[in-house]
Design a protein around this nucleic acid. Sequence first.
DNA 1: GTGATATGCGGAT
DNA 2: TCCGCCTATCACT
Length: 271
Amino acid sequence: MPEGHTIHRLAAEHQRMFGGRAVRASSPQGRFAVGAAAVDGQVLVRADAHGKHLLLVLADERTLHVHLGIYGTYTFGSLPAPEPTGAVRLRLAGAAHFADLRGPSRCELLEPGVVKVLRDRLGPDPLRADADPDVAWRRVSRSRTAIAVLLMDQSVVAGPGNIYRAEVLFRQGVDPRLPGRRLARERWAAIWDDLVLLMADGVRAGRIDTVRPEHTPEAMGRPPRVDGHGGEVYVYRRAGQPCLVCGTPVRAAELAARNLFWCPVCQPAAV
DNA sequence: GTGATATGCGGAT
DNA sequence: TCCGCCTATCACT
């Protein structure tokens, strides 16, 4: 679930349900008991997202920082909230709704200065209005590292995960192993613009769909296929299956300890 | 029921 | 480069 679009949805959800009013906070599981007690009764001033980081700014100027990691999940519901089931790290409750957080890799209260340090470590987020793609380009254009690795480095670009990086490189016809410094500037601009498009769509839809209308199963006369991760994609987790555009088997390899997927024909080596 | 797997990332080695 | 985190889902028995 958690690439950047998910976190931006969560921020919007928090803003809508809890923004501008006092929240009740508890840690049924107990692992965030002290933090929850400090949050309890405070006004949630603003819910924000930067990359995969959810930032809930509180009245005392501290920020509740949540990172879902690979396991973390949120469930929302209407009050009255049921007895918590499973390991609920944090439960927030407002006037009419509650939010349960399970399995996050981070759930902590941060002082303003620490939030700044955290955000200074993050690259521009395609989903944020204040994002400057040139900041990322400076890193990309000087790096010998493969563009596929750079795209998942949150200090270069904040928000994309394994699905968006595979899909945007496919859509832009870029070999994932191409070193950043060998990428043309216009090619980077196209990748960035496509990330903005895809991720904003992901926020609206709540799932990752990257397949253009002319390549959908319907358009190609194939049976509809929705992948296990909830969306329609070109290459992510389609190893060995035919490329939706050219029919070549999709390739897979491990790169920097993450699974990488690409079409060797549609994503030629030299771009 | 069991086991494999995962959209992430920090820390140890 | 590997390990651990600690939850949900899904394929299979």
